[in-house]
Design a protein around this nucleic acid. Sequence first.
DNA 1: GATGAAAACGGCTGTGG
DNA 2: CCACAGCCGTTTTCATC
Lengths: 154, 154
Amino acid sequence: MSVRLDDLDRKILAELQRDATQSLDDIAKEVGSSKTPVWNRVRKMREAGVIGPTTVLLDPDALGLEACFFVLIRTSEHEAEWQQKFLATLRARPEVLEAHRLAGEIDYILKVRVENARAYDVFYQALISEVRIFNVTALLSMEEIKFTTQLPVK
Amino acid sequence: MSVRLDDLDRKILAELQRDATQSLDDIAKEVGSSKTPVWNRVRKMREAGVIGPTTVLLDPDALGLEACFFVLIRTSEHEAEWQQKFLATLRARPEVLEAHRLAGEIDYILKVRVENARAYDVFYQALISEVRIFNVTALLSMEEIKFTTQLPVK
DNA sequence: GATGAAAACGGCTGTGG
DNA sequence: CCACAGCCGTTTTCATC
């Protein structure tokens, strides 16, 4: 069951994505409305799950997480049981920030943030010891050109 | 110039990542401290850039963004001028959520969120018309297995 | 939906240990 | 560096137009 979002909703979402610490008054002013309707819409969109968690974005380098890998995975196993274990492993590992099942020759892609290349190898060894994997290619990021969690709402 | 983070700092960061709407009192209770030290540490970490923007995570499907692509790019051009234009293009495009320059055979990877395959093609055509690119492979996500912005802080 | 009021709450500051 | 306390802005609810 989806939710219809009008233009005002989308403007509010854009503001919340930009800075979720803004007061309702500020948002209302920005989107050309007033406090109450903005508040009601935000509440409804939260209940509907359009708006998920409020969070802070941290600087990975400040945490010592200086290496980012994209991991391309091919597997020969496609049984339900294998997949269950694979997914559970990925979800349990905090260094795996993203995981997608893909269409085409490559079966999965992961985004992994770790301290350094050695820490990636530890992760890699742990992964292939837990689940059978046919082929793995790791792409090392040299530079994060762009990173945003702001989805285009227009 | 980096910042030294002690155990308490990291606990606070974990809580803020989990839910940035929590009150200072709640966080203080959770990390075994009290309001004032938590507040001072948060302020300092903000100033130091360890803590970046506060934002909300939206449901892409609710916004009609049902297609996610990872785009692998090879190029033959490595001059500064070409790169400048390429980066500017990526940064200007809101459907590009992430872009990394890579080590190895593949030069760049993009994460792109769009409405559907047709919208991706529009993006793709626009991209290759703006900058010269040698080879592009698009990986289509069938299922988002995991997505988190929470970096491991321990 | 807009406006305004009122209550509870939390961010933020200052003083003192 | 932490505890306590007070002020002020904001959230949240409610009543009215």
